[in-house]
């Protein structure tokens, strides 16, 4: 492959992960483990970092091992690889940031069953060289993270009047009646529903135009 071509594939992978095939809008998969922590921006950032780490590295590992894995136990091997990286994240968090580890509760462990991680390993890591698999994993996770960050930002500002723990001028004053519902579970469903609606409408419009 010429350098020109590699560059264009890389750009394509990045665009696909961030926008065109964004895990959340396009597939609405794998939101379980992460939606729960979007009530605070800080929690979301840590969770997303954990997800990027896990997805990129496990996709790469699956790709490296793809020649040696028997086909029929492939899924089990992939799960174990993912679990391996999740354990690393969990142990690190417990050791260096116990407070955050308590905040996130079981949701770090639930990255294992996050359909996105498994889906990317299976769909991409399994049939591509390690380098691009890493890139694909990283940018899919980033595409996922940026949507969650949008949700977390709205939820924290509207519900608590803060952004990542810092007071936001108007929203933290008594003039703003805090929407407590936003930091409770229903707020997450509403925000995600609205975000999916907006982004899908944009994509639908784009698809309709050429016709």
């Amino acid at each position: 492959m010429s350098p020109m071509q590699t560059e264009s594939t890389q750009r394509k992978i990045i665009m696909e992960g961030l926008w065109r095939n964004n895990p959340i809008f396009k597939q609405v998969l794998g939101i379980c483990s992460t939606l729960a922590v979007t009530n605070l921006v800080m929690n979301t950032i840590v969770m997303c970092a954990a997800l990027v780490f896990t997805l990129a590295l496990s996709s790469m590992t699956v790709s490296i091992l793809r020649g040696y894995t028997p086909r029929n136990i492939r899924m089990m091997v992939e799960t174990l690889i993912i679990a391996f990286y999740v354990i690393i994240v969990d142990v690190l968090l417990k050791a260096y940031w116990p407070q955050m580890s308590t905040n996130l509760g079981p949701y770090v462990g639930l990255i294992i069953t996050n359909c996105i991680v498994m889906g990317r390993c299976e769909a991409y890591g399994n049939s591509n060289p390690p380098g691009v698999a890493f890139l694909d994993g990283a940018f899919n996770a980033l595409g996922y993270s940026f949507v969650l960050l949008i949700i977390a930002t709205f939820r924290e500002i509207l519900g608590m009047g803060t952004f990542a723990g810092l007071a936001v001028p108007y929203f933290s004053s008594p003039a703003w009646d805090k929407w407590i519902i936003m930091v409770m579970p229903p707020g997450a469903f509403f925000m995600l529903g609205i975000v999916v609606w907006i982004f899908r409408s944009i994509q639908v419009e784009k698809e309709d135009k050429p016709k």
Binding site: P186, F189, G193, V196, W197
Partner: peptide
């Protein structure tokens, strides 16, 4: 609305 079909409306109902 087209953008809301499927997952979108499901999430709002879940809320």
């Amino acid at each position: 609305p087209r953008g809301l079909q499927g997952p979108g409306i499901t999430l709002i109902i879940a809320g």
